[in-house]
Design a binder for these strands. Sequence first.
RNA 1: CGGGGCAUGGUGUAAUUGGCUAACAUACUCCGUUUGGGACGGAGUGAUUCUCGGUUCAAGUCCGAGUGCCCCGACCA
Length: 420
Amino acid sequence: MRQSNLFTKTNKKPPADEDSKNATLLRQAGFIHKEAAGVYSFLPLGKRVRDNIEEIIREEMDAVGGQELDLTALQDQNLWQQTDRWSDEAIDVWFKTALKNGTEMGLATTHEEPIPNMLTHHAESYRDFPVAVYQFQTKFRNELRAKAGIMRGREFLMKDLYSFSRTQKEHDDFYEKMKSAYKRIFARVGIGADTHYTYADGGSFSEFSHEFQTESEAGEDTIYLSTDDDLAVNEEVLSDDVLEKLNLDQDNLQETTAIEVGNIFPLGTKFSKPLGLTYTDKDGQDQPVIMGSYGIGVGRLMGAITEIKASEDNLLWPESVAPFEVHLLRLGDSEDVVAETRTVYKTLQGAGVSVLYDDRNASAGEKFADSDLYGLPFQVIVSEKTENKGKLEVTFRPNTEPAYLELSELIAKLANTQHE
RNA sequence: CGGGGCAUGGUGUAAUUGGCUAACAUACUCCGUUUGGGACGGAGUGAUUCUCGGUUCAAGUCCGAGUGCCCCGACCA
């Protein structure tokens, strides 16, 4: 994309009404726009990042057999009354709204009810199971206090997958597959080393649920990390009993704050029973379906990546999620520089590389400043200098030492550093 | 929901502490010169000082109420 066509602008100063690093930098760079507290719009650059994260998650969900769908945000209160979760006491973050006829509807905070309800109309036989369905869907939560930029908002995009199994064993096997899928996701988006499988409260149907917690001072959770096992325990369930069960020694645990970037949750028959989701077994008998839910807040994950990777002043994107792989800077506007930059731009695009081409008639300093703020993984410079050298100047962030490469060498390098 | 802080052009700030036409930087538009770390000169555009009410000869400034934003706490299916 030509940067001259990008309608968003960077700001010299960060916004004054923002405290979190993620919102401060993402807004200063024009990746997101704030509509209200905890309500952020995604602008072209920000949307590209979020889309990239979404696509990685999608690939991993498809790989474990997930089928993508898209349920509505508007929710019928009758459904939620079946599980006794329509009241504001049961779910205190409900947004509710009235239809013209006076009927109340809710804006979905989760789809633990509607998904199994929908499934009762489609899956009945043991032959129809197991099933795993997922969606990227907007959730609404009327938080008492939104905070931490895009990491705890009132409206946000969430990937939620629900598994439906016939037996506990079938459920357990799938649960393990999801655990691996989540590990791959967090590794692929560049925070694998900082993210830890964490034991957390399991609610009424199982002893534990499991969270993926990314170490960061911006986090709101406290976890106890066992570095030997790359395993952690959320403060909320920490006890001698639990430590013994997990074979952990309190003295070897390290307390740290972390961002919950994902969680997986065994639900048992908590929802399938009241909603009447059963399957008919080979003997013609109805059997309850065993459920699991598996969530990742896509926006929160983007926020977490920002918190982990960005410096105080500049964003920095892992190649796998960057809005563009290459930031191509044209310094000067002499004919040969313009022609050469255009050639590089076209050739990289032809090679399947996403390029943000700064073709503006701006000063070098301004281009560098914007480029640093954007934090794309590769910075490629074409100028009189590089023309004389006959090579491109390439910086691979976060390195600051440039390399001088032929165009063909650059393309080879880009191919090699493609993330798994 | 309890507590604290803040609210002035798109953005970041100032305004003698109640006093003249709300200033500066940046951004934006136009002209010209520039082009390796946010260039320079010139000319412009842009503000109901969050809202409503009050005090006063006079309010961005004081008072009251409300709203919004940020932070701490509680809460977090």
